[in-house]
Computed example of a mutant assay.
Amino acid sequence: MGASPKTSLYVGGLEKNVTEQVVHAASIPFGDVKDISMPLDQATQKHRGFAFITYFEKEDAAAAMDNMHNGELYGRVLTVNYAQPQKMKGGEQGWASQAVWADADTWFERQQQEEEINRLNVEHQATVSAAEEADRKKLQEAQEGETEQGDAAEDPMAAAEAEALKVT
Rank of each mutant, 00 (worst) to 15 (best):
M1K: 06
A3C: 07
A3M: 07
S4C: 06
S4V: 03
S8E: 09
V11G: 04
L14I: 11
K16F: 04
V18K: 01
E20V: 03
V22G: 05
V23T: 00
V23R: 04
H24D: 13
A25W: 01
I28E: 14
G31P: 00
S37P: 04
M38I: 04
P39T: 03
L40S: 01
D41V: 07
D41Q: 00
Q42D: 10
Q45K: 15
K46M: 08
Y55V: 04
E57Y: 14
E59G: 10
D60A: 15
D66G: 09
H69E: 01
N70L: 12
G71D: 15
E72T: 11
Y74W: 09
V77K: 14
T79S: 12
V80K: 05
K87H: 12
M88A: 01
G90K: 13
W95E: 13
W95M: 14
A96V: 15
S97D: 15
V100F: 11
D105M: 07
T106Q: 15
W107P: 00
Q113R: 15
E114I: 02
E114F: 04
E115F: 06
E116M: 01
R119T: 12
L120S: 00
V122E: 07
H124R: 13
T127S: 14
S129A: 12
A131Q: 10
E133G: 07
D135Q: 12
R136V: 03
K138M: 14
L139A: 14
Q143C: 13
E144A: 11
G145I: 00
G145V: 06
E146D: 15
E148R: 03
E148S: 05
D151M: 13
E154A: 02
E163F: 15
